[in-house]
Design a protein around this nucleic acid. Structure first.
Lengths: 370, 370
DNA sequence: GTTGACATCCGAAACGTTTTGGAATATACT
DNA sequence: AGTATATTCCAAAACGTTTCGGATGTCAAC
């Protein structure tokens, strides 16, 4: 149906080679012939067969993204923004984006990575929501398959990644609450196994310790990253006596769920109980009260991840294969104002972002690495 | 690097043809040879080169989805859920999903559709957010390229689609408010040009008219489908005198933005002003107050759209190429309770869902069709 | 001993492109 | 006239798969 090089060649009266080279812009074809070829090409509505080209060039010009979808009713604003980021960057460089959806840690997901690692499906892969001792990353490392991760992991192999400094973010948030006078701070932690959850949890402990504040085990509950999970998890926190005066959601979705439940219990968020989130999804600014949170530039992270991957599949080594982005604290009303004591002057440390960028990675104790 | 049929053939001592046929399960290869071939295949870690297979079979086994992304900070929960729906269904049928991101109505978007229509890139396309007189759909129709749309359009050509009966949804919502005693109802309409926005707007007018309620032009404002847009747009509504007693957001995101702004003005949503949304995104249940809205089963719509497309690219004609889904009203607290007059008994009409399913398409006046 | 049926295998073409390594012709320089 | 140099073109191979149309051999039936 569609016109091929052969069609043009027959029409113009030259060889397929010449047509190919004319269209590719080589300089060994006469101006006149080139013109006739080009004219015929548009007249016949020629467009190259990408599959044939791929077979010949032995590369797909396609990047893969295996999306971890949790359950059928899956709706996480993170993903639409992230896909927009990688998709646009990929398009800039004439790459296609192949998206595959699988439940995390499922058989199907594993098969998808296996297939990808055997080559020929995509040129490179983007991995998100890294897990502790991530078998996907191990597989790709073992096969030396090109990929870039959004997030680090505890695996030993060295690989390129873009990540947000979750520990620094959590420190900003916890310190913010402490500076406001809070001493009993609850945390709705991301599920164990998720790497960024580990950083956030550990940094929560660290920051409390740095401020000489004890942490009751009861103050830490786990949620499943959805607003529903946040609403469920916060119940245990509200039942405590004494109750935490501030609650941090492991992500914005859980914080929003928590706010909902807290308000249902008749408390005023930002007055009776302070709440903070993590991610700064666009909706967080439109909650009542607006949510204090840690900003993550998801779109840019998607772009950087994709750009790095494109470098790698083209054999260029990326300028910064271990990119760590410094998060910023967005203070809104949900964290309220100072309690029990006058509002303290923010410390010099908090006002110096470099201090935060340069901070060494949190050193996990061995029993946590298991 | 990766093993090919030729490698196996050389190893086993048979022809490429035999290897191919053995692996494909043909019955004209001896049991013994087949066994040796299979053993060698796994030993060499053979996996077929998809590109070569595609070239030979002249089909890509890939479906395309060109995602209309609005601006860099793009985050719409609709898309992650929709992609999960089509992605999972596609995977069930061994199809890949190629995702491309482009700003709606941009040059890049048009190029992407052009490229797709010329064949060879993907076997079929999924089109969302249909527009009035949609040039994308016209293009695909003209080229007889296989596609399924989520949403209808005003184009003359006949094409397969899945859509939600937005008009029925809006009627449910408006009637709900009217039954509660509201007479001045404001609407934050989706931007003109979006097809579902047109249905919703028209149905708003129709339902008001059916109830003999006048509509002031001031009561209709337009928003850009984001929470930000909703917050902006509602300002004009709040400045009105007399103010509308109920406000409907053209989608949940705008309704949430509106709620935020309304509360900032010191009004109590669900008491001073009733608010309704459209879509029932997961977050809507966790607003304060929870949002009354029209449920759209996005995930299922994605699945149905994809299933229909797979039928089509395989030459099967889908059982119901014009699927219209009946929406349901989810009543939550944001719409409040009856005002000014006792809560009326719900009419027989409202209680009979079939009545709604069977309702004829709204008849647009000609001057609107332009 | 011919015939036909069956089981098992394979050569070659095809899908549409790119690229290698010249070939043919014309032009310029000694 | 002979040699070098450009210019313009192309045949053929290659990428890895599937499939068409036999080819070969074996065995039973006539």
């Amino acid at each position: 149906m569609a016109a091929t090089l052969k069609d043009i060649a027959r029409e113009v009266g030259v060889s397929v080679t010449t047509v190919s080279r004319a269209l590719a812009g080589y300089h060994d074809v006469a101006a006149g012939t080139k013109e006739r070829i080009e004219e015929t090409a548009v007249r016949l509505g020629y467009s190259p067969n990408i599959t044939a080209r791929r077979l010949q060039k032995q590369r797909t010009d396609t990047l893969g993204f295996i999306m971890p979808t949790f359950g059928p009713r899956f709706s996480d604003p993170f993903f639409s923004e992230f896909i927009a980021g990688i998709g646009n960057k990929a398009a800039d460089h004439d790459y296609d984006l192949l998206v595959s959806t699988h439940a995390p840690d499922s058989e199907g997901e594993w098969q998808a990575y296996l297939q990808a690692a055997r080559r020929g499906w995509v040129d490179g892969l983007i991995v998100v929501r890294t897990r502790e001792n991530d078998s996907r990353i191990q597989l790709l490392c073992d096969h030396r398959f090109p990929f870039v991760a959004f997030g680090r992991t505890s695996n030993v192999c060295d690989f390129p990644y873009v990540d947000e400094d979750s520990a620094a973010g959590m420190q900003l948030l916890v310190q913010h609450f402490i500076d406001l006078g809070h001493e009993r701070i609850g945390l709705i932690a991301p599920p164990p196994g998720l790497m960024f959850g580990r950083y956030r949890l550990q940094s929560f402990y660290n920051t409390m310790a740095e401020n000489n504040l004890p942490v009751q085990p009861d103050w830490i509950v786990t949620g499943d990253m959805t607003q529903r999970g946040g609403a469920e998890a916060v119940k245990a926190l509200l039942a405590l006596d004494p109750r935490p005066t501030a609650i941090i959601g492991g992500n914005d979705l859980m914080a929003i769920g928590a706010i909902n439940r807290i308000q249902q219990h008749g408390f005023k968020v930002g007055v009776d109980i302070a709440v903070g989130g993590f991610d700064d999804i666009p909706l967080s600014a439109y909650m009542t009260p607006p949510l204090t949170t840690i900003h993550q530039p998801i779109y840019e992270i998607g772009q950087q991840t994709c750009a790095m991957l494109i470098d790698i599949v083209n054999g260029r080594s990326p300028q910064n294969p271990h990119t760590l982005l410094t998060p910023t604290l967005i203070i809104r009303e949900s964290s309220g104002t100072a309690i029990k004591q006058p509002f303290k002057e923010v410390s010099a440390f908090k006002n110096n972002p470099n201090k935060l960028t340069d901070r060494k990675p949190v050193n996990f104790s061995n029993n946590m690495t298991q």
